[in-house]
């Protein structure tokens, strides 16, 4: 297994509902990343479609297979470099999902369906999409990896499950609308995401990468600001706010060994007690059962 990898976080603008135009941009960024010797390239949530799709959802569905006109070229490109893209998936029962595909060596090796769909305030995802119901890590040539999409990691349980399922590299991506302008140099939404990603890296002594799109959809802006936090919770790299960028950094997976030698949080995690207490809490209290 590779101990060092070159990770690229793409924070792109997208065209709303124009998959062909977005594919062209993906291929441009892939070419740039290839020129820089990148091993793994991560695009934002719904990178092939745009975010506020509403009634466009059924028309932007693509299938992560070689015979798909959009995924064909992406799978081809993944022969040299692993690629994570966001798209709209449709299952055999015709439910639509906000989806993430991990492509490697010409194959689709994992698809994640977003498990938390924000449907409050300015968000209306639950109106247009079905809820995913699985959080699973998966094996890659860089070890075991987990992917999550935006609201998925605003909840603590999905990153926790990935940690227990063996993910030592967490790849998070978003189409996060910028909101909360105060005196700080970044928006409240940006500050929040940075805080929790730094916390996950620290709590799980793991690498947490995040990328987020930029650009506008009507009056909504997306703030970019890709980050990588290391297993000590230190910021390794940060992309610019509100601008397209390809942020490239080295991930030295040996760092996990060093951190966990000092702080054995994973070793000491009491999953049995967790399960017992969770069982008790769920039986006793009506917290819903989704």
């Amino acid at each position: 297994m590779t101990m060092k990898l070159s990770l690229a976080l793409a924070q792109i603008n997208t065209s709303l509902g124009n998959v062909e135009a977005n594919l062209v941009k993906h291929l441009d960024y892939i070419k740039d990343a290839q020129g820089s010797g990148v091993d793994l390239l991560v695009f934002p949530e719904l990178s092939l479609t745009g975010y506020m799709l509403q009634d466009l959802v059924p028309s932007v569905v693509r299938r992560p297979s070689k015979d798909d006109q959009t995924f064909g070229p992406l799978l081809q490109a993944s022969k040299d470099m692993d690629i994570v893209v966001g798209f709209v998936d449709e299952d055999s029962r015709h439910r639509f999902f906000i989806a993430t595909a991990y492509l490697s060596r010409g194959e689709m090796i994992h698809v994640h369906h977003k498990v938390y769909l924000p449907t409050y305030g300015m968000f209306d995802e639950g109106r247009f999409f079905a809820w995913g119901d699985t959080v699973q890590a998966f094996d890659t040539r860089f070890g075991r990896v987990g992917v999550l999409t935006c609201e998925d990691f605003w909840h603590a349980s999905p990153p926790y499950l990935l940690w227990l399922d063996g993910a030592d590299l967490m790849l998070f991506h978003s189409a996060s609308p910028g909101r909360g302008l105060g005196e700080a140099p970044q928006l409240e939404s940006a500050r929040w995401v940075e805080h929790i990603n730094q916390a996950y890296a620290s709590l799980f002594t793991t690498f947490v990468a995040h990328t987020n799109r930029v650009g506008f959809e009507d009056g909504i802006s997306f703030w970019g600001g890709a980050t990588l936090y290391d297993p000590d919770g230190e910021l390794v790299v940060k992309g610019p706010y509100h601008e397209e960028a390809l942020t490239i950094t080295e991930v030295d997976l040996k760092k996990i060994h060093h951190t966990r030698s000092k702080i054995p949080l994973l070793r000491d995690e009491r999953t049995g007690m967790m399960q017992k207490e969770l069982q008790r809490i769920l039986e006793k209290r009506d917290l819903g059962n989704r």
Partner: peptide, 23 residues
């Protein structure tokens, strides 16, 4: 009230970006 204070560099960046994008 301090809550109404904004970071003007950030506002300027977002709003000029918005005008350029939407036009």
């Amino acid at each position: 009230m301090s809550d109404l204070k904004i970071n003007t560099d950030l506002a300027r960046k977002i709003l000029t970006g918005f005008i350029h994008s939407e036009i």
